[in-house]
Each structure stands twice: as structure tokens, then as C-alpha cells.
Write a protein that binds this DNA or RNA. Structure first.
Lengths: 97, 97
DNA sequence: TGATTATATGATTTCTTTTTCATATGAACA
DNA sequence: TGTTCATATGAAAAAGAAATCATATAATCA
């Protein structure tokens, strides 16, 4: 079992900015600049995060002129988020987290 | 949306030891000492991790004499692992992670 | 009550991840 | 070709998380 793969995978959801990026891409694919605007972080920081997300195949990307468009791996991410949403709603109503 | 809840939740899967603990509890509930043996870490480190896992309701616990027995929140954890296992098998065949 | 066993806690050190900054690459187009 | 816009990269600084250590609590039982 590839433990490191799991660690990296989950790390991408555990980090605030990376999680924001995932959420930003739920509705539709976006270019880097659009993502930068949505999540309100430095371009460079976002690029680093995108790299990490794409390396784990949480995001896909394709070029479009001089832009790069990132999109969500919905097959994995949507059902995953659904499970965790249910969990958080159930258990984190009035917890301090 | 409780972003911090999500971050903490995923952090418990992203960390090597915590992930090991989750895996150790897949078959059956265990006492702290049993978990310590299984994951091969210091008792104190394991206790810290158990606290964090239980705070997010990934684990439940109950006392039994002077022991404390930890068990998995299967409803959330099992389907989650299933999704990620599929993902890792599909994408991380020969990746370096 | 005091000794023993099981687990938890808090503070500090150590390690990893994230942010930031400066700069590089690469595509489009005048 | 040179300028501009979009994105990526690498290294160093800053922040955050985990491991460690010493000690505390809590339950059991002699």
C-alpha cells in the first residue's frame, strides 16, 4: 500500500488554500488568474498549490493559448466531498473548529 | 461553511501516524497500548494523535477499566477510504509518491 | 493508602509545509 | 524580433505541525 500517495492526496485537502482552490473549481474549470482572484492569494503561491494538486490527479489541466485551464477530477472529488460534508454537518455544529 | 473543520478533518488523514492508526482500527477496536504496538510509535505521540482523531469524530472511544478503547467511525471512514483507494490505484501505479 | 498499570497532558525541540520574492519560461502579437 | 501577458520555478524565510520528554491523572488492586 502506497502510504505516501495517501498522505499527499489528503494533504491537498487539508490545506486551506488548496481546499479553496478545489472549491473554486466545483462549478467550472478556471484559468490560473481566475483562481488567483477567487482565492485571494499570490499568483506564485497558487501555482505551487496547483502543481501539487495536479500531481495527485485531483486536478487536470490543459493549455489554451497562453493560459492554462484547471479542472476538477469530479469522479473522485465530488463523492469525497459529499461524505465529508455530511460528517462535518453532523458533528461540527457547535464545535470550536 | 466551516473551513477549519474540513482542514482538521483531512489533516488527520494526511499525517502518516494518524493514517496508520486509522488503518489499524479498520478491523476492530483497540486499546491505546494495542495501537501503540501496531503503529510502532511512542505512547505519548499516539495519545496526542488519538486526541486529535477523536476530536474530529473520526474515532470514538469508551473506557474499559483502566483502558480506553478506540474504534473507527465506520460510517464516514470506510466509504471515504474506498474512494481514495480507487483513486490511488488508478493514478499512482508508478508515480514516485 | 500506596503501588502498579494505562492513558493523557503541556512544554520544548525538531521537522515539514507554506509563503514570499525574484526570476524564468512560454505563448501571442505588434 | 521584442514586448506583453499568463504561468511556472527555485531558494530562502516564516509559519505550523509532529515528535519528544517529563510528568500528571485515573483506575485497579494488594
Amino acid at each position: 500500500m502506497k502510504k505516501k500517495s495517501y498522505n499527499h492526496f489528503f494533504m491537498n485537502f487539508a490545506n486551506k488554500t488548496k481546499f479553496d482552490i478545489i472549491m473554486a473549481l466545483r462549478d467550472r474549470p478556471l484559468s490560473v488568474l481566475e483562481i488567483v482572484k477567487k482565492v485571494g492569494k499570490e499568483q506564485s503561491a497558487v501555482s505551487h498549490d496547483l502543481r501539487s494538486l495536479a500531481r495527485c490527479h485531483i486536478l487536470n489541466s490543459k493549455k489554451k493559448g497562453k493560459q492554462r485551464i484547471y479542472s476538477l477530477n469530479k469522479r473522485t472529488v465530488l463523492p469525497l466531498l459529499k461524505i465529508v460534508e455530511r460528517h462535518v454537518k453532523k458533528y461540527c455544529k457547535r464545535c470550536k473548529l
